[in-house]
Computed example of a mutant assay.
Amino acid sequence: MKLSDIGEFGFIDRIAPLGLIRPAKVIRGIGDDCAVVRIDEDTCLLVTTDLLIERVHFYRSWGSANILGRKSLAVNISDIAACGGVPKDAFVSIGIPEDVEVEWLDDFYDGLAGLAREYGVNILGGDTTRSLADIVINVAITGVAGCNETLFRDTAKPGNILALTGPTGLSAAGCDLLLRGEAPPGHWVETLKAAHLNPRPHVKEGRFLAASHACTAAIDISDGLSSDLNHICTQSNVGALIFEDKLPIHDALLEAASYLGRDPLEWLLHGGEDYALLACLRPDAFPAVKASAAERGLQLIAIGVIEETPGMRLQRGDGHVEALTGGGWNHFRGRNGKFGGIEIRP
């Protein structure tokens, strides 16, 4: 059997039972945005790690080392945000090919440290080694959250309102433009490229949702809206209905769809790497929480509802309802989904 037969998440399911040796104080191990370990009665430690590999996740020609350094940390901070936590301490390891110059590395670490300062994160260590071909970046980060406020994927309830803290699809469209290698000049092009190369972790939004005590479950949009929603549905044993006409569509996305001849819905649903949060909220509390978010300058966009019957559905603009499959990124399989998608290839 090959990894492509079971995919990234099938592989994770196979190894998950092997990880827990000392269960005391471990609230969550493999299978969520962060591992969660109780520190004391009120406080939980959050731990997460992520890899970025050249020619799988990025090309050096796409942007500066500074921007890559920022993204390398941002994607990890986003996992802390998804659990409603505050990021604290990071450890950065990097595999370096012989053709990488010291000045490139200086710029990379300047970018990483710059984002760390913005979010109050220490960089406390890591490792360096030689790589035979490509740059390999691994960041591990810790965070903290109140144990009674930590957000998980498997606690969604039927009737919950599904809401986003920002638009989706911009990063995927930006990646498509970068892969194409050419695009007309315009602000919309730079907006989309920046969404892919320099994402913003939604830490304020995550803390707000956790403190509201109205959010029952959350996840960050890293693999794609449909894929990450599928994680919530599968782990919570629920279903979901998404309304196409409620999905926020950025003007830049419409420009890209026209230029590339694409259906913007495939980016919205299956794009990935947007790092907005997808939250499930109690319907009775949602109006007040949405209003409170707006007062703080935060977005909370209702796009659907959690249903009791497992499975995901999409209600199109004309009212027709059809099955929705998780079609975001899945390592070892690439992209699968009704609307196709993108894949970075060596």
Score class of each variant (00 low, 15 high):
E41G: 10
Y119C: 03
A35D: 06
V47S: 04
G114D: 10
L73R: 12
R55T: 08
A65G: 04
G95M: 08
I67H: 01
D50W: 04
K88N: 15
R38N: 04
R117F: 02
Y59N: 11
C34Y: 08
G84T: 10
E103V: 11
D42E: 10
E98S: 07
D32L: 08
N66F: 07
F108I: 11
T43G: 03
E103I: 13
D79E: 14
V36L: 11
V26C: 08
A90L: 14
G29C: 05
I137V: 15
L132G: 02
A116R: 05
A90E: 11
R22K: 04
T48I: 11
N76F: 14
L52S: 09
K88D: 15
G31T: 04
L46V: 14
D110M: 10
D127Q: 12
A65Y: 01
S131M: 03
T128P: 00
S78C: 15
G29D: 02
E41A: 14
H57P: 00
R117I: 06
L46F: 10
H57Y: 00
T43C: 09
G95N: 01
V37Y: 06
A81K: 07
T128C: 03
E118L: 09
I53R: 02
A82L: 11
R117Y: 03
A116C: 08
Y119V: 09
C83L: 15
Y119W: 09
W104K: 15
D42W: 05
G95D: 05
E103A: 15
L124R: 15
G29P: 01
E118I: 04
S64K: 00
I27F: 04
L105Q: 08
I94W: 05
C44V: 11
N76V: 15
A65C: 04
I94A: 12
D110Y: 09
G120N: 06
R70C: 07
I53V: 07
I123H: 07
G95P: 02
G95A: 10
L45D: 08
L46A: 08
I67R: 05
A35L: 01
I77R: 09
I96Y: 00
R70K: 11
N66W: 10
E101S: 08
L52I: 10
D127N: 15
I77C: 15
R60T: 02
L105W: 14
S78P: 09
A90S: 15
D110T: 07
C44Y: 04
F58V: 07
C83K: 10
G120E: 09
T128H: 00
I135V: 13
A81I: 13
G114V: 13
Y109T: 15
G85R: 06
K88P: 12
A116Q: 04
I137S: 02
